[in-house]
Nucleic acid binder design. Structure first.
Lengths: 230, 230
DNA sequence: TGTACATCAGTGAACGCGCGTTCACTGATGTAC
DNA sequence: TGTACATCAGTGAACGCGCGTTCACTGATGTAC
């Protein structure tokens, strides 16, 4: 039943496509932006809070706006979460770039990459939390977004591994699997690391370096000696 | 202010310690048990639901009891979650036992262990979901419970690795790190596997076997040739 | 065997709370003329 | 420059909902005598 003859009450009003699309926006200037909301959300996620548990009202409160103002920027919290994962992905790519840069400087590529990763872990902690955690819980959409990021990480690493092998005239067995192993290991151990106090990081870095060394020595030995995997 | 002179209204009644402790329980027979509630909770968790998101009312509904009856069995949902993780841990230990049994049968220990793990993943799917996911989200208590399980897995694996190495007169470099690498990798890749259709599991098993082979070859080569990790 | 009683698993109703979402609005800004 | 107007970011109040938790209770079971 309708309350008085209000005509079609089809719920929320859909804004008709603006005839001025592509031009400068009209009307009141935004006082907060999508980025402000993302920042507010980042303040709320932490070691025990995943993006999926954030509430719209909570984020709005943190950003200092009324709950319904949220809808001016995102369709719902899920859309905000996707934006967060995207930003985390960008942060990840920055890490890869940095690791590549350092690797080119001639030091041990394994050690320098691991150290870079752990440094960024401390710096962009919140963002990486999101990638590392949201991949295992959260909606299908979140998980796919995270998988995309991990995959691109893996592929760039694979290219690097092949180039490195050629450079040093070392053989390599199944480089894409090596890249996969390294990626998954570093991320798994990185996730665990985030729950440890930073003073235990050096020890963890040593462990990771040794493990990655084993994998590198393993792939080289197997390529050289043609060992089949069984 | 108190509503009529009801005396001390200090909230929920704490049952005084029974003078009949250790004897058969008196009173009405339970129609549902802790186990029934655990079963109900297991029905609810799935690829996109972590234990932390279960609500008391939801679990009670699934079990077919009134919401407040839940309190007869658990202090709160967190206590139920801990029970779930414990049970998952038991399931894990069963996997290790099975893997050990098969390994003794003389086939490749790496392949048979990975295959066992993946089989159990399909069978006890829900329980393993819990271990694999709750370790990255969830409360501090959950994470510690999961870390405990992973650690015991790691230690048993380490013992096996050393025994295996001695048996075959093969050297091994840093066995506890090898165990750690294998554990974290298998769990990380296992988590990812749960989101894939089962027909892609064989391919994944091949990948995992090859990667673990690399690690084994790596640790042996390093032990033999005394390569330092840098 | 019968009876009074203690125990205690499970219940239905109610509470206050935070949530997502909708509504009709306000008023600052930019545009057209 | 001035004025009328369209745009639209942000608002306060209200809604219905599911939640955890508490209350006083019911009635089945086992025990004591």
């Amino acid at each position: 039943m309708m309350r008085y003859d209000s005509g079609m009450t089809t719920g929320i009003k859909i804004r008709p496509p603006s005839p001025r699309r592509g031009q400068a926006p009209q009307g009141r200037k935004p006082v907060i932006t999508r980025e402000d909301l993302i920042t507010a959300a980042l303040k709320l996620v932490g070691p025990n809070r995943s993006v999926s548990t954030l509430s719209l009202r909570e984020v709005a409160r943190e950003a200092g706006i009324a709950p319904n103002s949220f809808y001016r920027h995102f369709r719902d919290v899920d859309e905000l979460a996707i934006a967060l994962i995207d930003q985390a992905g960008r942060s990840l790519r920055k890490i890869i770039g940095e690791a590549r840069y350092r690797a080119a400087s001639g030091r041990s590529i394994v050690r320098s990459s691991v150290e870079t990763f752990m440094e960024q872990l401390s710096a962009d902690e919140k963002l990486l939390h999101i990638v590392l955690r949201e991949g295992t819980v959260g909606s299908e959409a979140f998980k796919q977004a995270v998988e995309r990021e991990l995959h691109s990480f893996e592929e760039e690493l694979c290219v690097d591994l092949i180039r490195l092998a050629e450079l040093n005239k070392l053989p390599i067995y199944e480089p894409q699997l090596v890249a996969k192993a390294i990626t998954r290991l570093v991320f798994a151990m990185g996730t665990a690391a985030m729950d440890l106090p930073p003073d235990r990081h050096p020890e963890l870095i040593e462990d990771m370096v040794k493990i990655l060394r084993m994998i590198m020595v393993g792939t080289q030995t197997m390529a050289r000696e043609g060992i089949v995997a069984d």
